[in-house]
């Protein structure tokens, strides 16, 4: 302690005591989940921007979709949608499992989720392959591909996250009922991707 004209032991210790009792010290609080949530706000703004662009093109165009755009097939995307939405519930099971310290359950449910994500992506690629319009056919086609493609990128990233959690869960005791930030983050991200798809599906296919 440095020399000082005032007797610090009296003043300082006093305060410190007070502060500690007032706020029962939690040492290193984990803010990562808050961070993920805040980040997802930013992510949803990108999609919101793209959606508004789509709507702007749509309301200003005389006919929509522009003449000569083949109608979109609904069956395959419909099934795809159902798969993606149900995968969110599957993912939630994983979360419930790890909260009960059930790492096996976590692995099982996340593996299924990832698989469903891959099926979704395959379905989407299949659809791309069989569509009669390309990226530059017209403005509808362009927005269609950019929106679904950008979403598809997010699904891909979500699958990578899920696989990352699976990989880590192989290490004993990496996740427990106390510590499972990775699981929660991946799940949250997955729900986000899911919600975006619902809006996207409504905008592009139904409306």
């Amino acid at each position: 302690m440095q020399g000082s004209t005032i007797d610090p032991s009296k003043t300082v210790l006093n305060y410190h005591h007070a502060v500690e009792t007032a706020h029962g010290h939690s040492e290193h609080p984990d803010h990562r989940l808050t961070g993920v949530i805040v980040f997802l706000i930013a992510e949803s703004m990108i999609f919101l921007g793209l959606f508004s662009a789509y709507l702007a093109f749509r309301v200003t165009a005389p006919v929509w979709p522009p003449d000569g755009t083949p109608r979109l097939e609904l069956l395959l995307p419909g099934i795809n949608t159902i798969i993606l939405i149900s995968s969110s519930f599957v993912a939630h099971n994983a979360d419930t499992a790890i909260k009960k310290n059930d790492v096996k359950g976590l692995r099982k449910w996340f593996a299924i989720t990832a698989l469903m994500g891959v099926i979704f992506l395959t379905g989407q690629l299949y659809e791309y392959h069989h569509l009669e319009f390309g990226l530059t056919t017209n403005i509808f086609a362009s927005t269609f591909y950019v929106l679904t493609g950008f979403h598809g990128l997010h699904v891909t990233f979500g699958v990578v996250l899920l696989l990352g959690v699976l990989w880590r869960s192989l290490k004993a005791d990496h996740y427990s009922s106390e510590h499972h930030f990775g699981v929660e983050a991946a799940e949250l991200y997955w729900h986000f991707v899911d919600v975006v798809w619902i809006v996207l599906f409504l905008l592009l296919y139904i409306l």
Binding site: V38, A42, M45, I46, L48, G49, A53
Partner: peptide
């Protein structure tokens, strides 16, 4: 920054 910047990215 959080709300506005992503829209620029979209554009």
């Amino acid at each position: 920054a959080l709300i506005a910047t992503p829209v620029l990215a979209g554009a």
